[in-house]
C-alpha cells in the first residue's frame, strides 16, 4: 500500500519516496500560504463596501468599491486605460533603463578604482543630498515639459540606491577570495566573472528593487506636475472633475504595477541568488523539503 502511495506520489510530481498524500498536502499548504496575503485586503474591501452601503461614508468622497471597479471597466472598455498604463510603464521603463545604466557604470568605477572614487564620489554624494523633486523646475527648463524631463527625473530617482549598493558591494568584496583567484592564476576578467560579479549581485539586486520602487514614485510626481496621459494624469483628472473613484482606481493600478514589476525583477534574479545562506533560502528549502 505504501509502495502504491509512493508511486502515486511520483506520478503527481513528488520527490523520491514521497507519498501522494505528501504531495497533495505540500501543494495545498503552498497555495494556502500564497493566498494568505489576500485575507486583509479582502476584509478591507468587505468593510469598505458595507460602510458605503450603510451610508457611513459620503459617496462623493469615498465611493464604494463597486464604483471604483466600474470606473476601471469603463476606462478599459473605451481603450484609454491601456494607453494611460502603457505610457506610464514606458516612462518608468526608460527612466529605469538610463538610471540603471548610469548607476552601474559609475558604481563599478568608484567601487573598483580608488582614483575614480576620490574624484567622483564626493560630487555624487553631494548631489544625493538634493531632494530629487527639487530638480523638477530645472529639468522642465532644460528638457521641456514632455517626455525628456519626466524620464530624466525618474532616472535620477532610480540612480542613487543602485549606485550606492553597487559601490559598497564592490568595496566589500572578500579579499580572501581574491587571494584564491590570485593563487589559481585567474585573469582580471576571470576574477570579475567568478568573484566580483556573483559576490556583488545580491546587493545590486537590492539596489535595483529599491531603484525601481523610487522609479514608480517619481513617475507619479512627474505626471502629477504636468502630463496629458498616464496614471498620474488620471489622478489629476479625477481631482479636477471630482471623481474620487477615478483617483482610487489609479491608486490601485499604481500599486499593482509597482508590485508586478518588483515581483518580475525578483523572479528574474532568483536563479542567480539561490546559493545564499539566509532566512529566505531557508524558508524556500523548508517549503520544498
Amino acid at each position: 500500500m505504501a509502495f502504491i502511495d509512493t508511486v502515486a506520489g511520483r506520478f503527481l510530481g513528488g520527490r523520491d519516496g514521497e507519498t501522494a498524500q505528501g504531495v497533495v498536502s505540500r501543494t495545498l499548504s503552498r497555495i494556502a500560504s500564497g493566498w494568505l496575503g489576500l485575507v486583509v485586503p479582502l476584509a478591507i474591501l468587505v468593510i469598505w463596501q458595507s460602510l458605503s452601503v450603510l451610508g457611513v461614508f459620503r459617496a462623493n468622497l469615498v465611493p464604494p468599491p463597486a464604483e471604483v471597479l466600474r470606473e476601471v471597466v469603463d476606462l478599459a472598455r473605451d481603450g484609454t486605460l491601456w494607453d494611460h498604463i502603457g505610457i506610464t510603464f514606458q516612462r518608468v521603463f526608460f527612466g529605469f533603463f538610463w538610471g540603471v545604466l548610469a548607476a552601474t557604470v559609475l558604481g563599478a568605477l568608484t567601487g573598483e578604482f580608488r582614483l575614480a572614487r576620490r574624484l567622483l564620489d564626493p560630487t555624487i554624494q553631494a548631489l544625493k543630498a538634493v531632494p530629487s523633486l527639487a530638480w523638477v523646475p530645472l529639468f522642465i527648463l532644460w528638457f521641456g515639459i514632455f517626455e525628456e524631463s519626466k524620464i530624466t527625473l525618474i532616472a535620477v530617482g532610480v540612480f542613487f540606491p543602485i549606485y550606492l549598493n553597487l559601490m559598497s558591494a564592490i568595496r566589500q568584496t572578500d579579499r580572501r577570495l581574491v587571494e584564491v583567484a590570485r593563487i589559481n592564476g585567474l585573469s582580471s576578467f576571470q576574477t570579475i566573472r567568478y568573484i566580483l560579479l556573483p559576490g556583488t549581485l545580491p546587493s545590486y539586486v537590492t539596489g535595483l528593487r529599491a531603484g525601481l520602487a523610487l522609479g514608480w514614485m517619481f513617475v507619479i510626481a512627474a505626471e502629477l506636475m504636468g502630463a496629458s496621459e498616464g496614471l498620474g494624469f488620471l489622478m489629476i483628472d479625477g481631482q479636477m472633475t471630482g471623481r474620487p473613484a477615478l483617483i482610487i482606481a489609479s491608486l490601485i493600478l499604481f500599486a499593482l504595477s509597482g508590485q508586478i514589476t518588483d515581483k518580475a525583477l525578483g523572479w528574474a534574479s532568483a536563479p542567480f541568488l539561490r546559493w545564499q545562506d539566509n532566512l529566505e533560502t531557508l524558508e524556500e528549502g523548508q517549503r520544498d523539503a
Binding site: P198, W275, Q276
Partner: peptide, 21 residues
C-alpha cells in the same frame, strides 16, 4: 588556507573548476 575560502555561489565541483580554468 586556514579557512576553506570556497565561493558560496559555486557548487563544490565549480569551486574546484576555478583552479583549472
Amino acid at each position: 588556507f586556514q579557512d576553506p575560502r570556497l565561493m558560496p555561489w559555486l557548487s563544490v565541483r565549480e569551486n574546484i573548476r576555478v583552479a583549472v580554468l
